[in-house]
Design a protein around this nucleic acid. Structure first.
Lengths: 340, 340
DNA sequence: ATGAAAGCGCTAACAC
DNA sequence: GTGTTAGCGCTTTCAT
């Protein structure tokens, strides 16, 4: 391995000078600079980031904890995060918590041990609240929560207008004549799930529609669970739903599609369907799916911007946390009818 | 920051002993071990991985270079990689080359500087061949190429049976009566593109079908390019294709879907369509799409297994490279007819 | 304007 | 069986 010592020797300068020309943090004469640069080139010298980090305490890496890398919604967020981070000289260490809070804690341990400069996480829920408070917040390690929050933790947050989004979606259905509106959301421990349910209920109340337990299913992420949730709705309800809002993951949506298909329930003829998040393929479903969506790449970008800001401007450190909330938008396609 | 010195003091032992109980690499009496463990707990001590890496030369991280994180095919690969890596105590640094070879080189520079223990990459093409040879292969840094290879570089490789896959897909179409089969692939600098084209041509030759330039389009990744490629095929061909194999990305597939939709060309009535890679939603397209596919998660897993093997068993180091090739499989759904 | 040297937190060779 | 200490490659303070 070629080190700064080798460069210094070849250029006949001190290691301090080598360091100075690399980091441009103190004056070096043209003459010496040239010699150093030449030596660097000749030796194909690359500074060792590990050694630098040990000294400076900065690793130029951000830890990223995601519940499911394979999920396209998350991977668009990751794309946004990676993009902004890379442009600003940061790398990301990507970890998959698999919606499992124990795995999540282990990941956090490792990430903290590797001295990431900051963290972005989409938490699995609130189970690690105390751990995070003790090991991240208290130690002033910058963190931003993305898409999902943890109640009671004061930190930067980038989310979307889940209440309004679900409220408007439900209203839209109501205005088109739907009266028996079912919803499938995340479990309530996941903030978007809780908030979307809140928006749904708000709309129902305002529109004076009775709220029925059997129309509300939550929990699960897989398409199997989507299938089962849908099945439960149909089995438990005397009056079958005339529409379903799938306000959880794309996999649950696929499960619902699967159930409807298996039972020959046609969209939108027999049932209206609205999904959440406009993934590239949903407009090519049969029929093209109406969705309530949010700019995913931009959300990721923003999260990265916030951590990096915090990492680099310790002075602002005691400011109160940033809460960014992205507007959601209903994209109307052909998966619902006007039925009145 | 609490260091091993603090622990040593509190436990009244030497730092070597602290290190030994953490790494379990030399005998420590029960008595001392207990004192150390207690001190660690009391101080909430976490070993500093940076310092350890500086000493040991191992970072327990793998660099991962992907052309497009947002692409579900790649993100399933990443999921497999992350899963295997994490189980074995490795983290991954994820970088997006954006199908851009210059960005790719910069990424490699940074990753190497951060002393990753090994690399997994899906190369953008062969432009960085010399760079990789000089900075990775020659320095014996373990690397495995995933999904795409670089010709002339001797390294581990995890790919799929692209020639056979495209060959069988084309044969299937032929057997069902299709005679005017078009194909859209990656550019030829990307090995799967080259090989899929090879398989397609092999089938055509065997079936004594004339090979027409205007039925073959390659290049691009976006849905816009898919749209344009499809448009070109229709514009340039006197006899319109009766079927299209979309052997590139899911985004190009979406572009093709979009073109066909815009021109009211119905699948499979007016045209047969076969895609590559069985993403969760393709069976819910209209109509359910026939695809030639490969187990993505498993491919990622295997790639991780190979790098880690190489990282950890330096002794085998001069073995000849592993070439793993995953079988592809045709999943027949309803996007083609039997037309004879 | 540049060099010498200390020290970041850890591991491991050596000493006892 | 355990402690002492050098040193990983870098940055940065201090001295000149």
């Amino acid at each position: 391995m070629v080190t700064s010592v080798d460069v210094a020797k070849l250029a006949k300068v001190s290691r301090a000078t080598v360091s100075a020309v690399i980091n441009r943090n103190r004056y070096v004469s043209k003459e010496l600079e040239k010699r150093v640069l030449n030596a660097i080139k000749k030796l194909n010298y690359k500074p060792n980031a590990i050694a630098r980090s040990l000294k400076t305490k900065y690793t130029k890496t951000i830890g990223l904890v995601i519940p499911n890398i394979g999920s396209p919604f998350f991977s668009f967020l990751v794309e946004g995060i990676e993009s902004f981070s890379n442009k600003n000289g940061y790398n990301i260490i990507l970890c998959n918590s698999d919606e499992n809070s124990e795995k999540e804690r282990d990941i956090l341990d490792v990430l903290l041990g590797k001295s990431v400069d900051g963290l972005i996480m989409i938490p699995t829920g609130s189970k690690n609240k105390d751990y995070i408070f003790k090991n991240v917040i208290k130690s002033k390690k910058p963190i931003v929560f993305l898409d999902r929050e943890i109640n009671g933790i004061e930190a930067d947050v980038v989310v979307s207008e889940n209440i309004v989004g679900a409220y408007e979606t439900t209203n839209f259905l109501f205005k088109n004549g739907y009266k028996n509106i079912a919803i499938i959301t995340h479990s309530e421990d996941i903030t978007p799930g809780k908030k979307r349910l809140e928006g749904y209920i708000k709309s129902l109340k305002e529109n004076k529609i009775e709220i029925k337990e059997e129309y509300i299913k939550s929990g699960g992420f897989s398409s199997k669970e989507g299938y089962l949730n849908c099945e439960d709705i149909f089995r438990e309800s005397k009056i079958k739903p005339d529409s379903i809002i799938v306000a959880s993951s794309h996999l649950e949506l696929i499960g619902v599609l699967n159930y409807l298909d298996d039972h020959n329930i046609k969209i939108p003829k027999d049932i209206g369907l609205i999904g959440f998040d406009d993934l590239p393929w949903v407009r090519y479903l049969n029929p093209p799916l109406t969705v309530n969506t949010v700019p995913m790449f931009e959300m990721g970008n923003k999260a990265a911007e916030l951590v990096i800001d915090k990492i680099e401007s310790k002075k602002h450190y005691n400011n109160k946390p940033n809460k960014i909330s992205f507007k959601r938008k209903l994209i109307i396609r052909n998966s619902t009818n006007i039925i009145y």
